[in-house]
Design a binder for these strands. Structure first.
Lengths: 346, 346
DNA sequence: GGAGCGAGTGGGAGCGCTCCCATGTCTGTC
DNA sequence: GACAGACATGGGAGCGCTCCCACTCGCTCC
């Protein structure tokens, strides 16, 4: 185990010398060995092994103009509001996929508006080959930053804007929010429930919009008194539930647009002595295990593969970069399926 | 807003030409402008502005051998077990501090033993100037990896091993766990409590060890029936509490080594109809706001500045890198203070 | 048996930057 | 008013790699 003096790492030159070939040939071997005769390949490989050669990344990037790194941009609010099982799972999926492709993950946390400058500078600096970001509000400056910086970007969650004329279509990965909501409401109807209330998320998030659309797909003549708006938090779910019960004490089912709100709603139902699911059936969304399985009764909910979404985001981006190089078009966005998970609350 | 053709970004050469100076002078200005006369500085700055010049990071790294990036290594279990308010806060602190020093954050998530190879290769590859990692178990391969790769590393939480002879002392940032525990127990004693139980964490984590030591500092003749071991999770806290009550129904206070376990304990106390704090006073540790403020009654707990710890880790590392360059010794580890936060549970 | 061809290999330029060193310029000093 | 000395600037090498191009083989084919 030679303890390397820092800064004295062996170069390709050294490998080539040891293997008795030219630097060019050594380079070919290190990069896959195509078009080099077997014995030479072996000799170079052995030299690499003996010298513990590791390519200098900066030198490689300098000439190839590819960094082998991808930025993950995350706005600070998200890291908190989602109280993370959501985000951390997605990040994990991303990390796995990137690792499998020897691509590094550079994390950019946006703390406030002032940070966008820093982000813009970074992305424009050619430090990364692409970026992954999460679903944003309409006025978010990020899309225009990445576009101007020419950095291919894949979004998690359907963005609320669409590409302008002549622009590349926005690439994203999202769950089938609408379909999942449809399934949930349909299931409640199948149980014989007739006054199905809805606790929605903030209307500036497309996932909330899509879930509401799904609800409406089934309950075409929706009674507005059965709809309340929350903010995807436990507290807001409780508030919305109280509001709904005050307005419509006769409701017999609730579909909440995420599990956190469902758990808040459940708390209120219990406080008021309303048995779940006997009198009011309750369905959530997301299937966050730390929430949906922990409530009493456990939540029936719509499951989405969060980690899988992360993987797909990374895969979509990497594939797009690959295609950019080969001149093909970028791949399309992906909608991942959702499934209804039956537990005790409905 | 010139939409740059990718790959046609202006170089220092171009800036120099436009400002009518040499590349060397342009470089000096870009790197702070020391020893360049004012009018030239201005001219170069203007050229930079006009051309929207952004230095090529790879080229710079190639010659300076500094990457301007730091790795944050995190083992997958942590990301879940702590259910993250803890980790995400620390990460946030790190991110802020690094951003303030124009240093990038490369996130390395270790999924399993097989990943250590990848991590080792990455760290040895000179992709980063340093690394930040989190407190580990005795047999963790990471320390030996970073040492062999010659990557300066700062740990979050006191590591359970110490440096061998002749090795650099291990640098870390940790809360004053022992002092915090002392304060908590002392506080309970001040309330007149006499049979103060302890719910501890896993003994292979130094934070758990240190907190137990603090407890023992005050309760010198500890009764072993008053001590139970948990695993820093809600469930394990509940289990430990039940165990303690079975053994010692007469206990009048509990100090739990973290808030999650305290909330588990609280649940059990409530289930058994034991009033808190009247019959049993309860103190937690960490002051995780999502937990400590959300329980009923809210937890009295020992607060540690988690985000601040993250900042300090980054600062320690950056300062160490600076000193390496100037030839000074690396700075010492840091212990951050804890404070007792009084709420209703004790 | 010689021209033609393709595959394998090496030479060398150059990616964009920093930094050493030589050169030039302007002070201050006797 | 000439000379050292400090300071400012430019020229140029070189960081480690990839990739273009030219070259040399060993074959096939007529």
């Amino acid at each position: 185990m030679p303890e390397q003096h820092p800064g004295s790492r062996p170069t390709l030159e050294a490998v080539a010398a040891r293997a008795g070939v030219s630097r060019a040939t050594a380079s070919r071997v290190v990069n896959g060995g195509d078009g080099v005769r077997k014995p030479l390949v072996d000799r170079v490989r052995q030299a690499v092994e003996e010298l513990q050669y590791i390519p200098n990344h900066a030198a490689r990037t300098l000439v190839t103009r590819r960094t082998g790194a991808v930025a993950v941009v995350i706005a600070e609010p998200e890291i908190r509001i989602f109280s993370d099982p959501f985000f951390s799972l997605q990040l994990r999926g991303i990390s796995k996929e990137l690792a499998a492709h020897d691509t590094q993950l550079v994390l950019l946390i946006v703390e406030g508006p002032a940070d966008f400058d820093r982000i813009a500078r970074y992305l424009s600096g050619g430090h990364v080959d692409g970026a992954l970001a999460f679903s944003l509000h309409t006025d978010d400056p990020l899309p225009s930053i990445t576009r101007r910086a020419g950095v291919p970007t894949v979004y998690g969650g359907r963005p609320s804007w669409t590409a302008g004329p002549g622009e590349q279509a926005v690439q994203y990965v999202d769950a089938d929010n609408r379909g999942g909501a449809r399934a949930a409401v349909q299931y409640l109807r199948g149980l014989g429930r007739e006054r199905i209330a809805y606790i929605g998320g903030p209307p500036d998030q497309t996932s909330a919009v899509d879930r509401l659309d799904g609800y409406r797909d089934i309950l075409v003549e929706t009674d507005p008194t059965l709809i309340a708006e929350g903010a995807f938090t436990v507290e807001s779910g409780a508030r919305a539930m109280a509001e709904l019960l005050d307005r419509r004490p006769d409701l017999d089912a609730v579909f909440a647009a995420n599990d956190l709100m469902a758990s808040g709603a459940l708390r209120v139902l219990r406080e008021r002595g309303i048995p779940v699911p006997e009198q009011v059936a309750l369905v959530g969304f997301d299937d966050m295990d730390t929430v949906a399985e922990a409530t009493d009764p456990p939540l029936t909910t719509v499951r989405q593969e969060i980690e899988g979404q992360g993987r797909l985001m990374a895969r979509l981006l990497l594939r797009g970069l690959e295609k950019d190089r080969t001149g093909a078009g970028r791949p399309d966005s992906v909608i991942t399926p959702t499934t209804l998970v039956r537990r005790a609350s409905a």
